[in-house]
Each structure stands twice: as C-alpha cells, then as structure tokens.
C-alpha cells in the first residue's frame, strides 16, 4: 500500500505540473454548467433537485474520462519511462492501482468543484439531499468504471490518440446498451431475459438507479466489479507486452 500511495501521489502531481488539469477542470465545469442550466433548465423546472445536472454526466464522461485515461500507459510507453516503472521493486498490481487511483481522485476533484451548483439549489429550495449524495456517489463510481476501461485501452498502445478513440468507443458501447432506443429495438425480437441481461450491463441503467436516490448495493457492486475486471485485464496486457 505504501508503494501505491507513492505512485499515486507522483501521478496526481503530474496532472498539475502542466496546464492539463486546469484546462480539464474548466472544460468539465463549463460543460456541466451548460448542460445543467441551458439544456436541462435547472431553474425553469421549478423543482429543487439536481436531476438536470446529473442526467448529462454519462455523456460528459464519455469524452472527458477517456481524455484523462488515454495518457495513463500510452504516455509511459512513448516516453520510455515504462522501463523505469517496470524495473522498480513494485508489484504490477500496485502500479496499475496507483495510476488508476490518481486518475480517479482527479475525477473526484472535478466532481467536488461542482458542489456550488448543489449549494445554489439548496439555497433556493429544499432539495432531497439523500438523492443528491447518492447521485454524486453513482457519478463517481461511473467515472471510475469509465476510467478503468480507458486505462486498459491505454495499456494496449503507445499512441494516445488511438487510446482516446478506442476508449470512447468501448465506453459508448457500455452506455448505449442501456439506452431506450437500443433496448426498444432489441425487445422487438429478442427474448425478454436477453434484453434484461443486456440492460444490466449498461452503465446508464446502474447510474440512473443510483441517481434516483436508491442506494442499491448491487449497483455499487456492478461498478466496482467493472473496475476490478478492467484493471485486472490492464495488468494482464502489461504483463503480456513484457514477454512479447
């Protein structure tokens, strides 16, 4: 755990060594604000909740999270610093985890920066704070799952652009599985259990469940196990490249 902490700290600090972090946070907050107030009509709805804010998160993450994740491993390979990392007396698991946790903490920071929207709603009305807390948790977990996918994809290549595009595509599939358009199309001919299975694999389904304020352990476990599975595959890819 000591190694994970040291690795994650270096990685987290690296975001702030360049304007990358600032640019990302500004874009995130700008888009979150735009979606919430312009398209979501937070104020016009006359309801004190944050639903318009959270409902856009999956689509916001679809592009922003792969943008964070793309550099995780591809960059190390391009710079050659992967050689430094892999010859340290550190378990591969700790390397993967350290990088992932730093990126996830960064997403957490971005989310934290949106709390003034929450404060505004709380000041104007009387929102259900439990629902909002659950939504934040769901959003954070979903970001982690997107990140784990992005980290895995980043380990496959040393080209960040490819890592980004493939990352977006894979994440899109996981979102789209739960989108009504797709499910309606599927239920036209597929047996019901198949439709439900497919829907249960979608990030959208689990995120929406959490953002309704229903803190179901199964939704939390879904995201956590997605993270674990993709990080494990991430480690396998790195290990496999070592022998290739």
């Amino acid at each position: 755990m000591r190694a994970v902490r040291i690795l994650a700290r270096r990685e987290f600090a690296a975001y702030f060594a360049t304007p990358l972090a600032a640019v990302f946070l500004v874009i995130f907050l700008f888009l979150a604000g735009l979606f919430t107030f312009e398209f979501g009509g937070l104020f016009e709805r006359g309801q004190a909740d944050l639903r318009p804010f959270f409902q856009f998160h999956p689509w916001l993450y679809l592009f922003l999270v792969p943008a964070i994740a793309m550099r995780l491993w591809a960059e190390e390979r391009r710079l050659g610093t992967i050689e430094l990392l892999m010859t340290l007396p550190v378990r591969l698991r700790d390397l993967v985890l350290g990088k992932f946790l730093a990126a996830w903490a960064f997403c957490g920071l971005a989310l934290l920066c949106t709390t003034p929207i929450w404060a505004t709603v709380a000041w104007l009305g009387d929102p259900d704070h439990g629902v909002i807390v659950a939504s934040y948790l769901g959003s954070f977990l979903m970001a982690g799952a997107f990140l784990a996918i992005g980290s895995f994809v980043s380990a496959l290549t040393k080209n960040q652009v490819i890592a980004f595009i493939v990352g977006v595509l894979v994440c899109f599939v996981f979102l789209f599985l739960g989108y009504p358009v797709f499910l309606d199309f599927l239920s036209g001919w597929a047996p019901r259990f198949l439709v439900e299975t497919v829907a249960s694999w979608s990030f959208l389904t689990h995120f929406q469940a959490l953002s309704r304020g229903v803190l179901d352990l199964r939704d939390v476990l879904f995201f956590l196990s997605t993270i674990v599975v993709f990080l494990a595959m991430n480690g396998l890819v790195i290990d496999w490249k070592k022998a290739a």
Partner: peptide, 23 residues
C-alpha cells in the same frame, strides 16, 4: 535505461525523491 528516460514535466528534485521513496 538506454537514453535515460524521464518524465519531462517533473522537477529534478521531485523525480529523485520519488525514486528514493518508491525504493
């Protein structure tokens, strides 16, 4: 390693400190 790869945005002091700690 060949070519002495490093993280370009890190400061020398922080880089050496990181290696010392992770070791």
């Amino acid at each position: 390693p060949e070519g002495a790869p490093v993280w370009p945005d890190m400061r020398v002091r922080d880089f050496l400190r990181f290696v010392a700690e992770i070791r």
